[in-house]
């Protein structure tokens, strides 16, 4: 059932749109363009800035769109949830699955673009997949909690929209993390996104295998977020039906 709903979501996202799937690429590429125009001279220490920026942007864009979609999943399907005996969890899960499918499909054009910028494919590139798995679990946890809260407070969506740009600038996506002054470094490190972006960059930009420490952190954050998300969802579920 999750698969069928996920497929519906994929279809709906691009139905009657002219560019269809290309929209997924547009957002990160637009940001890349801006970064290139503004920042490429600003960080001379970063070698091959386009690859550096894009290896973070792809996953930022995945985070921003998927979290928003999962967050709205319960409220948007209120009519179905009020009149059919469907487990509510189906809809957030299906949005995550649709987002993952989208991301995997976008890897093909992005691989071509990265190659055009002079990046050489490497066998360790496949390590992106387990990182995506951890990242996906993390996003599900966070946005499942948000989707449950969204049933009660519709301004959770507005709040999230306000917070996302702040996260974008706090997370070292456009700039290298070591540019952050030493005494402020902890701010970057308490941000879970920092660790995921760093792991992706380790593989895609530096061509290295992430350290065991990094794996522990990203897997741990995924478990932590999904536990919190699940507990909150379970606690809030009894009131869903009266408050959709």
């Amino acid at each position: 059932m999750v698969r069928a709903v996920a497929w519906r979501n994929v279809r709906l996202r691009y139905k009657s749109s002219f560019l269809g799937f290309l929209w997924t690429l547009l957002n990160p590429l637009l940001f890349l363009l801006i970064f290139l125009l503004i920042f490429s001279e600003a960080f001379p220490q970063v070698e091959n800035y386009p690859v550096f920026a894009l290896s973070g942007l792809i996953f930022w864009s995945f985070f921003a769109t998927t979290s928003a979609h999962v967050m709205g999943a319960l409220v948007e399907n209120a009519a179905v949830l009020r009149s059919l005996a469907v487990p509510p969890l189906v809809f957030p899960l299906a949005q995550l699955l649709a987002g993952l499918f989208n991301l995997l499909m976008s890897f093909i054009p992005f691989a071509v673009i990265l190659h055009l910028f002079g990046r050489i494919p490497h066998s360790t590139d496949l390590l992106v997949l387990p990182i995506v798995l951890c990242f996906g679990t993390f996003i599900l946890g966070v946005s499942l909690a948000l989707s449950a809260l969204n049933v009660y407070f519709r301004d959770i969506g507005l709040l999230w929209n306000a917070l996302l740009p702040a996260f974008f600038y706090i997370t070292p996506i456009a700039y290298p993390a070591d540019l952050v002054p030493e005494r402020m470094r902890w701010i970057a490190e308490v941000n879970p996104l920092y660790h995921y972006i760093a792991a992706f960059r380790e593989v895609l930009y530096y061509g290295r295998v992430p350290s065991p420490d990094q794996w522990v952190v990203i897997a741990g954050l995924a478990v932590l977020a999904s536990t919190i998300g699940w507990v909150l969802y379970r606690a809030l579920r009894p009131g869903f039906i009266a408050n959709y």
């Binding site: 059932m1 709903v5 709906l12």
Partner: peptide, 22 residues
Amino acid sequence: ALGVGLEPELSGWENVRLCRML
């Protein structure tokens, strides 16, 4: 409710399949 779960952007056939699943 009548027609709940019907997705306006999808075709009749697709809706039949989806709603039956739901």
